[in-house]
């Protein structure tokens, strides 16, 4: 029995996400199944719909496998937001493993309708600015900044900027037309949007410090499609999913960041030093506290979730 998986995502085929993670994953399952499991890759939302609709698509079988950001659909996956709070993530590999473990306890209900293959995060979020560089907290006032998720939007608003929410594929157009002054995305996204050609300035936070933000991703398979696989093919999927895969993707994204950063060499890059980050972190702490309260208000265990997230990240960072 041969099975073809329709793999759908929003970045182009040339993106690092595809070349360093999705296509290699497809090659691996093809090899380990003696070509009985194959992918048909549909990048750039070719099958239709919008990036926020990818989750519904895999749940309902419009696609068999998708890669997407739970954060594109605000309110739907509150538990994962713990990882999108400011200054949580240091290593994408460790944090991705932690996210997988965390999701096993806190996110089962939210993802019960799909078969999650991996949960992961991207590397340090970076500011990419067309004409107004960010050198410090004072520069945020009046800036229109694109952000990916609910919490990043809130964080930027608290820092004084005007957040504009849009999925990555719209960022290039928005930057080129001056709809936004800049965007926050990791370096990994740079070539997928041609950010290096659309902006002049980049701002990183001290790389030795936790990232000022990250986003969570889910790589998920349609549940019925998985259940219908013969036992040996299920095994191939099982062997290529879970905590290990999550960690691998996190690692691949770190590599992608390094590659993407090379492309920006001709632009100016500012680094916010650790000492200057104190007031940023104060705002971040406020946001975290607000979030915990909000979750508690919804009857979710906000305090517990944040604690567990931090503990798991620390545990995996320590290499356990």
């Amino acid at each position: 029995q041969e099975v073809t998986l329709k793999v759908h995502f929003f970045l182009p085929a040339t993106s690092y996400a595809n070349t360093l993670f999705i296509t290699p994953w497809c090659d691996r399952i093809a090899k380990e199944s003696a070509n009985r499991l194959k992918c048909q890759i549909y990048p750039s939302m070719q099958l239709g719909g919008t990036p926020p609709q990818l989750f519904e698509q895999v749940r309902d079988g419009v696609a068999d496998v998708v890669w997407t950001l739970p954060g594109y659909t605000a309110g739907r996956f509150p538990s994962l937001e713990a990882f999108e709070l400011p200054f949580m993530m240091q290593s994408p590999e460790a944090t991705s493993k932690a996210l997988w473990d965390y999701a096993q306890t806190h996110s089962q209900a939210e993802f019960k309708d799909v078969k999650p293959l991996a949960f992961h995060v991207h590397g340090d979020g970076v500011f990419h600015m067309t004409s107004k560089p960010i050198k410090g907290l004072a520069d945020f006032k009046g800036l229109k900044l694109r952000a990916p998720t609910r919490l990043t939007n809130k964080f930027l608003a608290m820092l004084g900027a005007t957040p504009v929410s849009m999925p990555v594929p719209q960022v290039g157009d928005a930057l080129s037309k001056g709809v936004i002054d800049g965007a926050v995305v990791p370096y990994e996204v740079v070539p997928s949007v041609k950010i290096q050609e659309l902006v002049k300035f980049h701002t990183e936070t001290d790389p030795a410090q936790p990232a000022f933000y990250t986003s969570t991703f889910v790589f998920a398979m349609n549940k019925a499609k998985y259940e219908a696989l013969p036992a040996d093919l299920k095994k191939v999927i099982d062997a290529n999913s879970g905590q290990a895969l999550s960690g691998q993707i996190g690692k691949a994204f770190l590599q992608a960041d390094a590659e993407g950063k090379k492309l920006t060499a001709r632009n100016t890059t500012n680094v916010i030093a650790a000492a200057e980050l104190a007031p940023w972190k104060a705002v971040g702490d406020k946001l975290s506290a607000d979030w915990v309260k909000e979750m508690d208000g919804k009857g979710l265990k906000g305090t517990q979730m944040l604690q567990d997230a931090k503990a798991l990240i620390a545990k995996h960072a320590a290499g356990k």
Binding site: K6, L47, G48, G49, T50, Q53, E56, Q57, D60, G61, V62, M166, D173
Partner: peptide, 23 residues
């Protein structure tokens, strides 16, 4: 190419996706 259920699922979001484009 894909079956009834995928079509029905596709249409749940596709129309809204098309008419709610900012641009």
């Amino acid at each position: 190419l894909s079956g009834w259920l995928p079509l029905l699922s596709h249409l749940k979001g596709a129309v809204y996706g098309r008419v709610s484009v900012y641009d």
